[in-house]
């Protein structure tokens, strides 16, 4: 029963955008569309940075992600990991530690993408 509840729980939360825009559907839809176009690129860039052990890229992209995720409520799920990656990249720590955190970030962002894709055309 618990597992079933977890399955239907949403990863994304648009309440920040809805509240800030006083329910302006056009604005929310545009922000979601921007997220859907930007986020996969950020994830790709982060994966590339990790594969190449390019700490400067990792730090830059992690920072970018940190600014993007609160718009759709993903900060509740992955802010800790994103902040840790940004800080780890500054200290050039073991790439495996970054990979562990990236795995969670990627999975949450993919889930968000699939949740928001239909929303973007419906709102």
């Amino acid at each position: 029963m618990e597992a079933k509840t977890e399955n239907i729980q949403k990863t994304t939360d648009l309440s920040y955008l809805i509240e800030l825009s006083a329910g302006n559907k056009v604005f929310v839809k545009e922000m979601v569309a921007l997220f859907l176009s930007e986020n996969p690129e950020e994830i790709k860039a982060l994966a590339k940075g990790i594969a190449e052990k390019n700490y400067k890229t990792i730090k830059t992209v992690a920072h970018k992600l940190r600014s993007t995720i609160p718009f759709i409520g993903l900060d509740k799920h992955i802010e800790k990991e994103v902040v840790e990656i940004e800080s780890m990249a500054s200290e050039s720590v073991d790439i495996k530690e970054i990979e562990i955190r990236f795995s969670k970030i990627k999975s949450v962002c993919e889930k968000a993408y699939f949740e928001l894709s239909p929303v973007s055309s419906v709102i």
Binding site: S21, M31, T68, F71
Partner: peptide, 13 residues
């Protein structure tokens, strides 16, 4: 602001 979503949000406000 370099973040596209950030730019959109500030502009809206």
């Amino acid at each position: 602001e370099d973040n596209l979503l950030g730019r959109k949000l500030i502009g809206f406000l």
